[in-house]
Simulated assay, not measured.
Amino acid sequence: MKLLTWQRAALVVAVPAIGLGLATPALAVTPAAPVAVTDPAGDVYNDDDELVDAPYADITNGDVKKSGANLVLTYKTAKQLSPAEDPNWESESSLTDFLIDTNGDNKEDFDVEYGLDEDGDIYADVYKLPASDTDAPACTGNGDFVNGVHTITIPLSCIGNPAKAGYRVETMYDLDVNNTESLAGYDSVPDEGFAQVG
């Protein structure tokens, strides 16, 4: 685990409050966007709320679909490069969160965190929210980068097998891992609310 979304709240201009999730969802999600979402390029902001050029963090589309007993989460950026080949992903300030709303209250109940571990391998960990930096993942999934697309697969059982769910993708990217004073760049899609899982 690197840095959970709630720990970054002070750095991001508008991160919704973390909700208290239910183990077994009973409500349907009311999505704020279509199933697959797109985002214009050139909208990455840094810690000082300044627009920055960070194409490897600049989300252009995201999608989450059920596939059998799994949930498959994907996103693409303006420029594509595997985290394993990008030195800036070695920073603790570089990771991606898929925030999942499983009970329709428009608040995140799970955080699917995607990044590089200490060995330089891609990981995908699922955390039940709210969480602390000492909490172990609720489960782990598989993360991969294939044909320019970041892909995460997790078991649906890990998030309570919801009948419906919503999602939001958030990137955090160290702009220069070799500079100790480097700022991080941020992007999200959708910008507000949650898109519906297909």
Results as ranks from 00 to 15, higher is better:
K65Y: 07
G185F: 06
L175G: 00
T171W: 01
M172K: 05
N161P: 04
D125M: 09
Y167W: 13
P87S: 11
V169S: 07
N106E: 15
L175M: 12
G104E: 14
D119E: 14
D144E: 08
S91H: 04
Y114R: 02
L99K: 05
V177Q: 09
G185H: 04
S82V: 05
V177I: 09
S132G: 15
N70G: 02
Y127L: 06
Y114G: 00
D117M: 11
L95Q: 05
S94T: 14
V177G: 00
T140Q: 08
Y75C: 10
G148S: 06
A69F: 07
A69L: 10
P190K: 01
L175F: 01
P87E: 12
T77S: 11
S67Q: 13
L116C: 01
I154C: 08
P155E: 13
N179I: 08
D187G: 09
A138F: 00
I154L: 04
Q80T: 15
V126I: 12
D174I: 03
G120S: 10
P87A: 10
G120W: 07
E90M: 10
F110N: 04
G115W: 00
L183M: 03
A165N: 11
A136V: 08
D135V: 06
N88C: 01
E118V: 06
K128F: 03
N178E: 09
A124T: 13
D191K: 13
D119T: 11
L81E: 10
A163F: 06
V146K: 09
Y114V: 05
I154V: 14
G120I: 09
E113L: 13
L129E: 14
K76W: 06
E118C: 01
V189E: 11
M172I: 07
S94M: 10
A165D: 14
T77P: 11
E90L: 08
Y123E: 10
T102M: 05
P87L: 09
T102N: 04
Y75E: 06
T151R: 14
E192V: 14
T151N: 04
S182W: 12
K76E: 15
N147T: 06
V169K: 12
C139I: 00
P137Q: 02
D135Y: 06
E108M: 06
G148V: 09
T96C: 14
C158N: 07
D101L: 08
L99P: 06
L73T: 01
D125W: 12
D187W: 02
Y173G: 01
T77F: 04
A165E: 14
D174E: 08
L116I: 02
I152F: 00
H150C: 04
S188V: 10
D121G: 12
D135F: 02
D133I: 03
A84D: 06
Y127F: 15
V72A: 00
L116K: 02
Y167D: 14
Y114W: 01
K107D: 11
C158E: 03
N103Y: 12
E192M: 12
D111G: 03
R168K: 15
P137A: 05
E181I: 10
V72I: 08
N179K: 12
L183S: 02
D101W: 11
L71W: 08
G104C: 13
L71G: 08
I122L: 15
G160D: 14
A163E: 11
V72N: 03
Y167H: 14
E92Y: 09
A165L: 12
